[in-house]
Write a protein that binds this DNA or RNA. Structure first.
Lengths: 399, 399
DNA sequence: ACACTTATTTTGTCTATTGGAAAAAGTGCA
DNA sequence: TGCACTTTTTCCAATAGACAAAATAAGTGT
């Protein structure tokens, strides 16, 4: 049954309006009080009073005057992204990035600490300590942490991460007790798709999928403008889409899972098999002759060098992905599908091939309607993801 | 960009609270004022005043007293579902059902008019006229219309229906002009999944899929407690999930679409082909020896009679469906998947086979966690669907 | 310089919620 | 049976936020 929303009082309406006004300034600023009032259907009085509060908080500043349209010049209001900071932490399998960022996801200072083989409790302690050392002065609005693996975002608990040996770690609680700062936790892929929507090129997409192609393949899903997590945070297991009923058995119980054809672990297994069978590939040379040393980078470089095996595998990847994506398009009809992750980032040829394949396969794949697109965020996108999570929380209209 | 919510005033809060209180009485009634106040965190005064208004409107009535717990006995409040009616219209390909229903989707009076070969404008005129004749007295809260095919629910326009020759018909506008009553329009499958959630056995499902297996296969999708329609209402094309890359070509451009293996049109084509090749089946006898006369019912009956061909086709259906459903489970991880439509309704063996198959294929198909379930609404479920659409609208908490 | 515009602020009104008191209707024990 | 205590419901005055109207500020255009 639908949870009945909680009743609210006068104070709530003020907060609601203040939040709307702040977001209007954030997204449409510089803007005058009068224009906000018109845009949001509020009385000028209400806007004046809310803006007064926002200026007192330092979140908004008057910044010059606009053009007159026959009367008094409007006083323009501007959002002040540096009035507060958020601490963003992107936990990876090999390193932890940590940054102080402003309210527009701009980096103020950054630091990376190695995981250094730490796992489980030791890793958590290490993390808590590092954060404590990282904090200076105050003016922090909160902390945001992203972790790969299964995350219970609602309760702030890392449910499970194989490689980091984390199981049911109540990170949110631990961090809040230690720092007294509001803390958000989210899965890394979810965070990144939020970042693409709020700080990348996909602002207008109500329904957005981010397909992350690394060792395995996962998806971050935004539907109706907010993250979709499924029943127990189990949504987005895109890598286990079966694209071939009689394909390779997967340890998920099914056969022909997409991951085996388009994820790095699957690809790597095939590369090894080919090499074992005596096939020649530049990937081996690039890895210094050691098959165990081949990395995704070697694959991408070999691709650019025109390596035949790499080509072949790319083709397979594209076909496999296009089948899975076509199915998603039919079911969800999203505004866009983003291809990201180590094997897709900067791999334009994969994108081209996938789109071509989908155009053939799918009703929705109309000519000039390219739906599968590249990630738009470069650089510290993992940190931008963490920032997106907490900033979305901070600026969310209540109710 | 996220649409910023509209600003609100005092009147809004009153409506909001009234709506919350009404829904509390609807779902948890009979209930006392005090209990509502506690449950919703409202002051007793506020509840009293809202209840006063609701009683004046006739939506709520005092109905006896409850048990005392040491003080004054509570006066219980009860929802009055018969205080208003809604007109529900389920347009089908062969007939149009029309009913006056109360605020709990109970039928007060009903009528079915045949489509009788009417199409396009003629059909629409016929429909408008029939509704006008159907209306008696007043006390109507609105009209709800469901139509198969592509529907733009937001604007109340039937975009496209092949068989009824409808294209861009602004039904909502036409009906509202004619009757002066608020009118909702929705796709039939979407309406039915809403009905399963609000008036069936799936009340607790936040994320729910209804797979409708008729001529083709479509899906109605509820995510986070409300209908998901995709970019242009194009979501739910489940029948065009490709389950076999080298399968039968489909006019959607892809190959091996689920529809061909599990939808009636696909099944029928296969049955004809088998008969043509001389295969013996009881379906032919049931249809009086005329292959063109075979209907889904004949298939279902033959199945119960142990017909070999029907068995074979059922097995294929189950396998095909399970592949498609497994993919959905991996991506959306819903609370439940409902199998409905002519070929699934009452077809328990299909359900059993699909579940068995999924248990093998899928991580999520854990033992006692049967996710694929039968439709729970019997009888006039198409009308219940229409009712669900408008009642959900009427009782929705604003904001 | 004067009439008209537009933007912002001030002032007073309106209204839904609310806390607390009062009323209504009980319970339970001596 | 009477009296003290509870619980539910209603009444009342206070509060606070939105708002309309008026006032003020700062223009434009002729």
């Amino acid at each position: 049954m639908v949870a009945i929303k909680r009743a609210k009082n006068l104070k709530f309406i003020q907060e609601w309006n203040r939040s709307i006004i702040l977001n209007t300034i954030r997204h449409s600023g510089p803007i005058s009080r009068m224009e906000i009032a018109k845009k949001q259907g509020l009385s000028p009085t209400t806007v004046t009073s809310a803006v007064h509060d926002l200026m007192e908080m330092g979140l908004v500043k008057e910044s010059g005057v606009g053009k007159s349209s026959g009367g008094r010049k409007p006083i323009l209001l501007q959002f002040q992204p540096d009035s507060l900071s958020v601490i963003c932490i992107a936990v990876g399998h090999t390193s932890i990035s940590m940054a102080e960022m402003n309210l527009e996801a701009g980096v103020k200072q950054k630091r990376t600490v190695p995981v250094g083989g730490r796992t489980g409790e030791e890793l958590v302690d290490h993390l808590l300590q590092s954060v404590e050392l990282f904090l200076r002065s105050d003016g922090y609005a909160g902390i945001s942490i992203t972790v790969p693996g299964i995350v219970d975002a609602e309760n702030g608990i890392v449910r499970y991460n194989e490689r980091l040996k984390l199981r049911d770690v109540p990170i949110k609680k631990l961090m809040e007790e230690r720092t007294q700062l509001q803390t958000c936790l989210e899965n890394d892929t979810n965070a990144i798709v939020l970042a693409e929507k709020y700080y990348g090129s996909y602002k207008d997409c109500e329904n957005l999928l981010y397909i992350m192609i690394d060792d395995g393949i996962g998806a971050g899903i935004i539907l109706r403008d907010s993250l979709y997590r499924g029943r127990n945070g189990g949504a987005g297991e895109f890598g286990h889409t079966s694209i071939d009923r009689s394909g390779i058995p997967c340890n998920c119980g099914n056969r022909g899972c997409l991951e085996h054809y388009a994820g790095w672990l699957g690809l790597y297994a095939r590369i090894l098999a080919y090499i074992h069978r005596g096939r020649i590939t530049q990937m081996l040379e690039l890895a210094g002759g050691d098959p165990m040393a081949i990395t995704p980078d070697h694959f991408l470089i070999a691709l650019n060098l025109g390596d035949e095996l790499a080509e072949e595998l790319l083709e397979e990847m594209a076909v496999a992905l296009s089948v899975g994506i076509s199915n998603i398009l039919n079911i969800l009809d999203p505004d866009a599908v983003i291809l990201g992750g180590e094997l897709a980032q900067g791999n334009e040829r994969l994108l081209t091939k996938v789109n071509a394949q989908i155009a053939v396969e799918n009703i929705h794949g109309a000519k000039d309607d390219i739906l599968v697109l590249p990630a738009s965020l470069k650089g510290d996108y993992a940190l931008t993801g963490a920032a997106a999570v907490i900033l979305q929380e901070i600026f969310r209209v209540p109710g």
